[in-house]
Design a binder for these strands. Structure first.
Lengths: 203, 203
DNA sequence: CGCTAACCTAGAACAAGTTTCAGTATCGAA
DNA sequence: TTCGATACTGAAACTTGTTCTAGGTTAGCG
């Protein structure tokens, strides 16, 4: 379950890696303040000490940049979550606990969350591969939390997909102020029941 | 459950109503071709025979316009769906059937669906009231399909919310080419099981 | 009918994402 | 070390959403 983010493609030189890192850092920085709108490509370029054209060479659009930022943050999150695995009895409880922990982390940086999630759902086909990577990372986190004895069956994978759907969409309703934190919690707990429905093994 | 879309606010004159209608028609028209990107405010204005400033008086942003377009389409959809109510045995089956029918309708106009759904999820707080209306319309459609004997309890409402989350998010993954039609079907059917979980009454 | 406020039009202007280009710097191989 | 290819820079240009302005039109009311 080592979900490293594609170090594929032409390997970057050290300075290029550093540039890429500076860009992602600047992006997260700006997003942490004003959210999606505050991540302006000219400002990112300036903050990262890079020309605008170079920024576009690394990330072909603002959405690409923000989705990459999300990959970055998700990786941190995954690492953090692993340090203290959830303690629930059932897989459903553990997943709900894990997602709520992630949710609390996002609450600490609502503007950053806004930027990343909006980019993710706004992404068109040209960003599919990157969005897919995010999806795989999320799946990995959920499967990690389930801590299954056996590899998941197709029914369980469906349940996981539905949980992901609910997770993303609930985040959006929260970010746009249409749902309260409590409501998100309820939705997550509700959808997690699907797991026990598809997995009779009580462990 | 008559979910008419707010005819509130200052009532419009006949010509104004006609303008509004022309604008929404132009919007849907353009969206049916190139999707979200093809709905360009200048073009909408021209196609509707209206000045740009007027367009912005009726719909304060492109997202507002597209969300209103969605309200419009949803109302049609709701009317159409009512004509032939779903025939499933359980509420879960009926909801799944209804959503799949809606899904097939969207498949006939994928570009239009793209424009509307992208606008919906990209909407920020300033569009919350309108997005909320869409959400209520969707809820009404689902509750209609459930065809409950008694008013829904809080658990059932949670399940409905989760179904809506899944519906929207699954649509997005389909529209961005990351999930197949078959996969969307499975996800919808999976999440609909939640209904039977929260409603022991088999009718 | 005549008035006034609200509405509409054409068009310029502005903002931010994206593209382009000419010139300079860096990298990897010979 | 030198050369050719590739990458980077700075700046201008282009696109499309959004705002603003000046002047003409409409609706409703006395």
């Amino acid at each position: 379950m080592t979900a490293e983010v594609k170090p594929s493609s032409p390997p970057l030189t050290e300075r290029q890696e550093a540039r890429r890192r500076r860009i992602l850092h600047a992006s997260a920085q700006l997003a942490s303040r004003g959210g999606f709108d505050a991540v302006q490509m000219r400002e990112v370029a300036e903050a990262a000490g890079v020309a605008l054209g170079t920024l576009y060479r690394y990330f072909p659009s603002k959405v690409h940049l923000l989705v990459a930022t999300m990959q970055d943050q998700l990786q941190h999150m995954h690492t953090t979550l692993r340090k203290r695995p959830p303690a629930g009895e059932s897989a459903a409880e553990r997943v709900a606990e894990t997602l709520m922990r992630a949710f609390r982390a996002l609450q600490r940086e609502p503007q950053l969350a806004d930027a990343m999630v909006r980019a993710l759902t706004f992404a068109d086909r040209s960003v599919s591969p990157e969005v897919d990577t995010v999806s795989r990372q999320t799946t990995a986190i959920i499967l990690d939390a389930m801590d299954l004895a056996d590899p998941p069956g197709p029914e369980q994978l469906s349940a996981v997909r539905v949980i992901e759907h609910t997770w993303h969409s609930a985040l959006i309703t929260w970010l746009s102020g249409r749902a309260s934190i409590a409501q998100v919690k309820i939705d997550i707990e509700t959808v997690c029941r699907l797991i026990d429905l598809t997995d009779p093994e009580p462990r």
